[in-house]
Structures are given as structure tokens and as C-alpha cells.
């Protein structure tokens, strides 16, 4: 039956599971948020702009206490001194997580501002002096948050570049040892093992390259937030959409 095939299709089951996870829903909302940004610019739509703010708010609430995960990850990476991982990659990942933790913590303050728990606009504060100093604090918090995000991206880029370089070196070493004829002496099993190793390294390189592209696209967003770039909203929206698709793909893969 067609209905049966559709309802019990593994893809549909996977989609339902994906929508039932916090990470999945958050990534989807991020995609919708940047899509609304793109639409609001292209169609000059007020509705799309308000939707963008709404999705942003929901995402920020969903990310509540997420900084804890990053600080835990950073401490785990720091404690994991015995691993064979490259020290540059390890430290850049530690810094990435620390900056992400700071970014998300400051973002929670921003959430309180958006929820109007902290002073938000002129109407909430009567005194002009207070008004100016509050606006300055808000501006600074938002800027610090974006700086933290930017530095986390930079750490990510360093880690990605180093991983790509390491993968290239490993691939070169394997290919040169194959050409030297060292492998020809070994039996078939060894050859298959080498092939598996090559594909593993290539996968790692592909993942890092994708991550690099992801980080570079995120850079466009954050540099615009920091006013170092002055791109149009549709470009920012588009890069946000692409990175959200990457995020959705990653979360999709992790769901069993």
C-alpha cells in the first residue's frame, strides 16, 4: 500500500526522530531564521523580519545552559593529554570550546534583553544618562558575544587547516611507501588495510574541508555583526542557510 510505504519509510522515521531532538529542531529553526532574513531583504517584508526575530528567540531559549556542554568538552580535551592528537589541533579545539562557551553565556544575557527582563529600549528607562549607559552596556555585550563567536571560528579554522595538512602528509607518506614497493611484499590483507586507511584519511580530510567552508561562511555572518563587513542581508542570509544545512546534515547523521 502506498500509504504504508510512506508512513513506515525509514526516512520518515528518521525525520520524526530528528524533529524530536533539541539539536535537530534548533538547526531547523536556524535555517528558517536565515531564510526569513533572506526573504525580508528580497521581498522587503515586515512579516519575515518579525518571524526572524521570533525564530531567533526560540533558538536562544533552546540553547539555554548549552555553555555547560562546551566547557565540559573543553575540560575533557584538556585532560586528554595521552591521546595521539596533534597539540595544535588539541589546543585550538580547547580554545574553540572556551570561546563558544563565552559566546553562548553572553548570548543568554542577550536573551534576557530580548525578553525585556533587562532594559531593552528607551521606554523602559526614564533617565537619559542611565539610558545611554545601558545602551552602551548592551552594545558592548552584543559585541563581546560576537567577538567570542569570531575567535571560536578562528580557532576552528586553525584546527581545520592543520587537520587538512596532516591528512595530506599522511596520504603522501602512504602513496610514497606504496611506490617504493614496500607494500608489494606484503600480502593482500595488508593492501586492503592500506586502502581502508587511505579512505579513512580522505574522509577526515573531506570533513575538515567541509568544516573549513562552514567556518568561513559563518565568518561572513559574524564579521557583518561586528560591522567589519557590510554585506547585504541576502548574502548573510544565504551563508546562514548554507551553514544551517551543514548543521542539519551533521545532526541527521548522528541520529540513530
Amino acid at each position: 500500500m502506498v500509504c504504508d510505504t510512506f508512513v513506515y519509510h525509514p526516512w520518515i522515521t528518521h525525520l520524526i526522530k530528528f524533529l524530536d531532538t533539541t539539536a535537530g529542531r534548533e538547526k531547523l529553526l536556524r535555517f528558517l531564521q536565515y531564510f526569513s532574513r533572506l526573504l525580508s531583504f528580497s521581498l522587503n517584508s515586515v512579516k519575515a523580519r518579525s518571524l526572524q526575530l521570533q525564530f531567533l528567540l526560540i533558538r536562544k531559549v533552546l540553547r539555554f545552559l548549552k555553555p555547560l556542554n562546551h566547557i565540559q568538552l573543553a575540560s575533557r580535551l584538556y585532560d586528554n593529554k595521552l591521546s595521539n592528537q596533534d597539540s595544535l589541533i588539541r589546543y585550538s579545539q580547547i580554545w574553540r570550546n572556551i570561546f563558544l562557551c563565552l559566546y553562548l553565556s553572553l548570548d543568554q544575557i542577550n536573551l534576557l534583553r530580548l525578553l525585556k527582563i533587562l532594559p531593552y529600549n528607551n521606554a523602559t528607562i526614564s533617565n537619559n544618562k542611565n539610558n545611554k549607559s545601558n545602551e552602551l552596556i548592551q552594545f558592548k555585550i552584543s559585541r563581546w558575544a560576537n567577538y567570542c563567536w569570531f575567535f571560536s571560528i578562528l580557532s576552528g579554522i586553525v584546527s581545520d587547516l592543520k587537520t587538512i595538512q596532516n591528512s595530506d602528509t599522511e596520504l603522501e607518506y602512504i602513496s610514497s611507501s606504496t611506490q617504493n614497493g614496500n607494500v608489494s611484499e606484503k600480502d593482500k590483507n595488508d593492501l586492503e588495510e592500506t586502502k581502508a586507511l587511505i579512505s579513512q584519511i580522505r574522509d577526515k580530510k573531506y570533513t575538515s574541508t567541509k568544516k573549513l567552508l562552514w567556518d568561513l561562511l559563518d565568518c561572513i555572518i559574524v564579521l557583518n555583526n561586528l560591522n567589519y563587513l557590510k554585506s547585504r542581508d541576502d548574502i548573510v542570509g544565504l551563508s546562514g542557510m548554507i551553514t544551517s544545512i551543514f548543521g542539519i546534515q551533521d545532526t541527521w547523521k548522528t541520529i540513530k
Partner: peptide, 24 residues
């Protein structure tokens, strides 16, 4: 919290809960 901000927070939390339920 002022009256208006508490109303706003309440509304946003309500929308957040709707968003979590949405889609099935």
C-alpha cells in the same frame, strides 16, 4: 520584571512551547 515585560516573557515562553510541539 514590569507588567509589560512579564507579559512579553510569558508570551514568548508560550510560543517556545508551541514551537517545540509543532510539526508532527
Amino acid at each position: 520584571l514590569s507588567v509589560s515585560s512579564s507579559q512579553w516573557v510569558s508570551q514568548q515562553l508560550s510560543i517556545f512551547r508551541y514551537a517545540l510541539r509543532f510539526g508532527g
